[in-house]
Design a protein around this nucleic acid. Structure first.
Lengths: 155, 155
DNA sequence: TGCTAATATCATGAGAATATGCTAAAATCG
DNA sequence: CGATTTTAGCATATTCTCATGATATTAGCA
């Protein structure tokens, strides 16, 4: 899987706060219900996001979580980073697999793709994902992956 | 991480067999040493690859593992599939996150990138990764990812 | 001040992925 | 056949992620 379960939950939570809460903080319990995650576990995740500067928290009555900065300035990379360092994404076979020879063949081929992914995560913002209208050319060639998937669905 | 530890080991093992063994089978013990994996655990992984039709095994003296088909016909997808279904790679937030509305915004943005990755895994073969000479234009813009990584290395 | 609503934190448990060790089965060769 | 070399496979340990439950801390408000 691309993102660990925790990282996925973190992104879902941020998307919920960004789209749901209009100014007012969103309570942890409400976020937990929305993203379908256990309350106490999510609490820890939200706290990590707070320390990472993605969210701000407010205690007591009318407390909760809100975005620390505008949604247009929060890249997916920033949300994901505390749970899955960018470093781990760059080596297909782990960092150690590279550098044994002057240059690792696998990394040479892979890094072109990895750079694409990294660019996506760095340039796509939370705001991009909560916009309800999406231009047709962004709704792309899913069919290629579909075909690949159907081919092996017969196991 | 892109690939589980087991999937990484599997790919490393196949690359070793493809490059090391010239016709003759390679023993599990030798592969284990080469890829730095525990002998008995790798054994299980090799067996899975055998059932998947990537490798063939031969018991007894002068036995071991060899490619079931030419390296030029073994895509990375085929090696990885038994350990990380392609399905898991296509949804950034898991399959369930999609389809709650008519179309999932996250998936709409992500699938373009996911398709790129899938294409890489489907078209790149084991032979591509064991070739020692590599054309300059395949040794690509690593620097972008490098910069991203350095920025957060200071934690 | 004291009550209540909310996050912060700790201690522990469950389950999956990973690893290890032992025994069985098969193939080769004398 | 019998000894040796090698994979096959099971049973169990270890480690890590994910989850749960209980308690502490903070903020607002009457």
């Amino acid at each position: 899987m691309w993102l660990s379960s925790t990282a996925q939950t973190a992104l879902r939570a941020v998307l919920h706060v960004a789209s749901g809460g209009h100014g007012a903080p969103v309570r942890a319990g409400e976020i937990a219900d929305a993203v379908g995650a256990p309350r106490n576990y999510l609490s820890k995740t939200l706290h990590v996001l707070t320390r990472a500067g993605v969210l701000v928290s407010k205690r007591g009555p009318n407390g909760g979580f809100a975005l620390a900065v505008p949604a247009t300035e929060v890249s997916l990379e920033r949300v994901i980073a505390p749970f899955a360092p960018a470093d781990d994404r760059r080596w297909l076979l782990g960092r150690r697999g590279c550098g044994t020879t002057s240059h690792c063949m696998v990394h040479a081929h892979w890094s072109k793709v990895a750079t694409e992914v990294e660019r996506f995560l760095a340039t796509t913002t939370v705001a991009d994902l909560i916009t309800t209208d999406i231009s047709p050319d962004q709704l792309l060639p899913t069919f290629i992956a579909e075909d690949l998937s159907h081919a092996r669905a017969a196991r």
